[in-house]
Design a binder for these strands. Sequence first.
DNA 1: ATTAAATCGAGAAAGATTTATCGATTATAT
DNA 2: ATATAATCGATAAATCTTTCTCGATTTAAT
Lengths: 213, 213
Amino acid sequence: MDNLALPASKPTLKRLPKFYQYLTKLRAAGRSNISCTEIAREFRLDPTQVRKDLAITGSVGRPRIGFDVVTTLKSIESYLGWDNANDAFLVGAGHLGAALLGYEGFAQNGVNILAAFDCDPAKIGTTIHDKPVYDMEKLFDLASRMHIQIGVLTVPGGAAQEVANMMVLAGIKAIWNLTPVWLDVPDEIIVENVELSASLSVLSSRLAEALRN
Amino acid sequence: MDNLALPASKPTLKRLPKFYQYLTKLRAAGRSNISCTEIAREFRLDPTQVRKDLAITGSVGRPRIGFDVVTTLKSIESYLGWDNANDAFLVGAGHLGAALLGYEGFAQNGVNILAAFDCDPAKIGTTIHDKPVYDMEKLFDLASRMHIQIGVLTVPGGAAQEVANMMVLAGIKAIWNLTPVWLDVPDEIIVENVELSASLSVLSSRLAEALRN
DNA sequence: ATTAAATCGAGAAAGATTTATCGATTATAT
DNA sequence: ATATAATCGATAAATCTTTCTCGATTTAAT
């Protein structure tokens, strides 16, 4: 398992999980192989694009046959690092946090949420979707002692930077940021922003434009 | 109000709301103007990029002074169509749906959620964050009669396509899709996908790569 | 066995986005 | 008043991403 792993562009990284999900469905339906052409049709992409994306994961296809479904699933899993999951803490057990605690996508994406943290006494000590909710105060201590690598940030915007700082101090390497706040963290910390506001804005302005014409 | 509105690229459309949020903070702090250089520093972007983005909205700056905060906020609002909000229905009042019903970002982004729909009898008839929850059965009827333009999709993946079809039939023009499912809808329907899974996957694979080195 | 059709992989071309360059403008300091 | 430094706007260059082209490969049909 040498894992030379070519670097993929962000767009590629975003398409691969979609292919994965689609391939999973195919496997369940008993399909043993699939062509790039067909995957491309499903997602309205260019077949070459799909081929290039899959090539990065190390998958190889055969003319007239396509790609083996099971092998390709394994290639994607391995390329994306889903085969050895990283432990994560979630901070902010509000509605969004609770939604994410019940999100089955974590396990599938190589992320293993161990616990949630909040400062609301009503939530501390309870469990949400079987995950314990601890006092915010314990975050630093637990995260550093358990060598947690990923932090999921679902606190209100006002607290985001402060919590992020704490995560960094506690040794967390990557932050999945679901707040609308741009986080100021050291360069070596990986931050992925889920910009709900930005996405909504794209929708609303595209609609506004469509309605003008 | 001629609104010739130059078309913006998607990246631009995603950056503008960030600038907006930042400018809002500046306004609250009493700042009257800001340079592209400073905005760029805040978001680690190229100053020219920021200038181009703002230029699209019609904002003009002055050398040595920068952009007027209040005027620029107005330009962005107007460019993104936030000044005349579109009505929306949300379908799927689970945790994620509930989180979004309480999300103050909608109003700010030109989207006005009027109601939620669900098929769970325990939820039907209640309100969540002051929004009524109606029976799914009523979606088509209400959406078509009220000329709802935006649908927010937070149902489980398995129901996504079916609900999307119903939205389209009811005359909805734009779908904000928070399910991991790729929706097959007519070309003229605007779909914005919030790919939680994809975003998480980017995080986890970037972390996997960082840990390899 | 031969032909035809589908698909692959590699590389070139096109398109989109970001970054760099440069002259013009304007507040601030001398 | 003049010089200086910051910033703007426009254009050009560079980079990144997607799409196109084409020869090679492989199954299925004749």
